[in-house]
């Protein structure tokens, strides 16, 4: 899901938003803060935190990237890395650098209960929740991009900003919406992962961000279905790698996949289609 956020922003403004992993981290911390400090129920905290992440995404764009829109790509890239480090440190100052447990008692009680079980594998309601939310978001995202007026505007901005402006699209606003959507998705992912592993820490976004970036590269950066597929493939590869080699190699596998993809299929799995269409213009 973070991979999708990356690829969406790259797809629209050709910027690798390295700070996206930090939004995911913030999502987890926001949710925990809402739960433990304000005593909000899990679902409310979940949506509120997504909303905050959407706002963070937009602010990130306005503060860090918009002033650099006309500058060389490298400047924005360096800013992205800088923002990533800044947000990590900000989180350390606010919430401390130690890993925190997720307030499990706030999760609905039935999350623990087994929902389905077949041939010895038990899936809890929490598994189903994660699975369901992910599916709904992915399908929803696809519908937004494919069918809505705003989705069309997003794709237009991605293909040609000048022309998009000449058809009457407010380019900066569309980019803001894209950051908001990517932020909300990233935030949701952060909360679910933190709750699932019962742990959250300021650098969690960094590792996840690298993996998501690998997934996006694998899928062909800029392609949303590619990022979804890349995420699945990478997850399976990691599970196998951890199973057959050693769980120590788990994180290394993402890097290895990324390097192999960049060397052998730089366009990624789905990027190729894009390239060919461009050639035929």
């Amino acid at each position: 899901m973070i991979a999708v956020g990356y690829t969406m922003i790259y797809g629209v403004i050709l910027l690798i938003n390295f700070a996206h992993g930090e939004i995911y981290m913030l999502g987890a911390f926001f949710a925990v803060t809402f739960i433990s400090l304000l005593g909000l129920p899990f679902y409310v905290a979940f949506f509120l935190s997504m909303a905050c992440c959407a706002i963070c995404g937009v602010l990130l764009d306005i503060v860090a990237y918009r002033p650099l829109r006309q500058s060389p790509r490298l400047a924005a890239l360096i800013t992205a890395i800088g923002m990533s480090i800044f947000l990590q440190n900000l989180a350390m100052v606010i919430w401390g650098s130690r890993p925190k447990p997720f307030p499990n008692e706030a999760l609905p009680a039935y999350f623990e209960k087994t929902a389905v079980s077949f041939s010895g594998v038990n899936l809890s309601w929490f598994h189903l929740f994660i699975f369901g939310v992910t599916i709904v978001m992915m399908v929803g995202l696809n519908l937004i991009i494919k069918k809505t007026r705003w989705g069309k505007a997003m794709r237009a901005v991605a293909q040609n900003q000048t022309m998009a402006a000449l058809t009457g699209i407010n380019v900066n606003r569309v980019i803001s919406y894209t950051f908001a959507l990517a932020g909300a998705l990233g935030g949701a992912a952060g909360i679910m992962v933190a709750a699932f592993y019962n742990s959250l820490y300021p650098t969690m976004g960094y590792v996840a961000g690298v993996k998501a970036f690998a997934a996006a590269v694998l899928g062909g950066i800029g392609s949303v279905p590619g990022a979804m597929l890349g995420g699945v493939v990478l997850g399976v590869a990691e599970a196998f790698g951890a199973g057959y080699l050693s769980s120590l190699y788990r994180d290394g596998i993402s890097y290895a996949v990324m390097i192999i993809v960049i060397i052998f299929i730089p366009a990624g799995l789905f990027g190729k289609v894009l390239k060919e269409t461009k050639k035929s213009m």
Binding site: R149, K152, A153, R155, A156, Q159, N160, T162, M163, A164, A165, L166, T167, G168, I169, N170, V171, L274, T277, K278, M281
Partner: peptide, 30 residues
């Protein structure tokens, strides 16, 4: 630029600048 379009000035730029990955219908919708 988008406000200028709103005011009634439209441009067909040099090189046409069709959105290559959008359908003809989607181009017209935009």
């Amino acid at each position: 630029p988008d406000n200028i379009v709103q005011m009634g000035i439209c441009q067909v730029p040099e090189g046409r600048m069709i959105f290559p990955l959008l359908t003809v219908m989607e181009n017209l919708d935009l």
